[in-house]
């Protein structure tokens, strides 16, 4: 997890690309819950994303493709399984906090208790 926060200002009009954004933040986290990004985690992820003002996107790779983290339909369609690394990128005033919160949610396994079985490494 590495939520980089750049000081605001100095928007050097760089084209949106692979490099870290100007006033944005990035981070990533490994999906370790047994079922991956299924329905309930998708709902939690979008709800958390919606609590931030920043534009937030989720990608299955560091280069995307990116989907809107605030769209429950799009997030559910990502269907990322256990062992996938989810990438986050955000732009906006609370971008760094948003990425940190989302990374933490994934790392907490979406607060879903893996009761009993589950070969948790």
């Amino acid at each position: 997890m590495n939520a980089t926060s750049h000081p605001t200002g100095g928007s050097a009009a760089g084209p949106s690309g692979a490099d870290a954004g100007e006033a944005g933040a990035r981070g990533s986290a490994l999906l370790t819950n047994a079922v991956g990004l299924h329905a309930r985690p998708s709902v939690k992820l979008t709800q958390l994303a919606k609590s931030f003002a920043a534009a937030i996107e989720v990608g299955l790779g560091a280069e995307g493709p990116w989907v809107d983290a605030k769209s429950p339909v799009k997030i559910m369609r990502v269907k990322a399984g256990k062992g996938t690394v989810l990438h986050f990128r955000a732009e906006g005033p609370d971008a760094a906090a948003a990425v940190a919160a989302l990374v933490a949610l994934v790392e907490r396994r979406f607060d879903e208790e893996e009761s009993g079985h589950g070969d948790a490494p």
Partner: peptide, 24 residues
Amino acid sequence: AVIAATEASGGSPLDVVRRTAEEL
């Protein structure tokens, strides 16, 4: 219902809630 409620729980207006559900 689940998707619409998820959208609604973030405070989205009615037309956005509807659009999100209909994306399905």
